[in-house]
Amino acid sequence: MSDKTITFTIDEVEVKARPGQTIMEAADEAAIYIPRLCSLKGLSPFGACRVCTVLVNGRPQSSCTQPAAPGIVVENASERLHDIRQDIVEMLFVEGNHFCMFCEKSGNCELQAMGYRLGMMEPKYPRLWPRRELDASHPDIFIDRDRCILCARCIRASREQDGKHILGFLGRGPHKRVTPDSSDGLVQTDAAVADAAVAACPVGSLMRKRVGFGIPIGQRKYDHRPIGSDIESGAEVPDERK
């Protein structure tokens, strides 16, 4: 195994990877945090959000899907990549209707935490205020598409972990949305409150009912420490769902 170890650099720091690992996986093990939203430990890489974009030998690649290769030079924590990532996060904010002030996910939301980490005060782009439909048909969970960032984490978790295949994308471009596989809404599917798909949502889009605002302000996940702190401190890659 050791002779197959891949060696490359991230921001001039030497990093080792096993064959088949992505750049992000190798970085995580080396306590280097690459910002990400659509990537979740245990799910197949998807490359939807592009927040984890790094420069591989000068070319932009999503580090959650790009395999580590011997000798590549990866740029991660530079100012230009920070600016690109902030632009992406700002676009995610203006594309949806994100009202942090009354969202029950606030404080535990990965999109919001990414805004904090990247220093966003307010998106520089004008907000689009799209009109999106809420699916509150299910007794225990709901889909609030205003808050959806189309990361496909719920879709992948439903297929790969729940084995249910009950969620998918419908439409294209600005009309693209997460939808259950029933025209009568979530209530007509096998969706259950304990599904991995529900826990996988990074924002307040696929949510459990009747548990909102349970954690007081000041004790929420990202109240005191930026997202990614645990990876940077060398802890095992966290499950962002917990």
Partner: peptide, 19 residues
């Protein structure tokens, strides 16, 4: 200085922006 979410993004009053 825009102080608060209403000044910076519209805030709760902006909920009518989708309608």
């Amino acid at each position: 200085v825009s102080v608060g979410d209403c000044a910076t993004m519209g805030g709760v009053p902006a909920m009518r922006n989708m309608i």
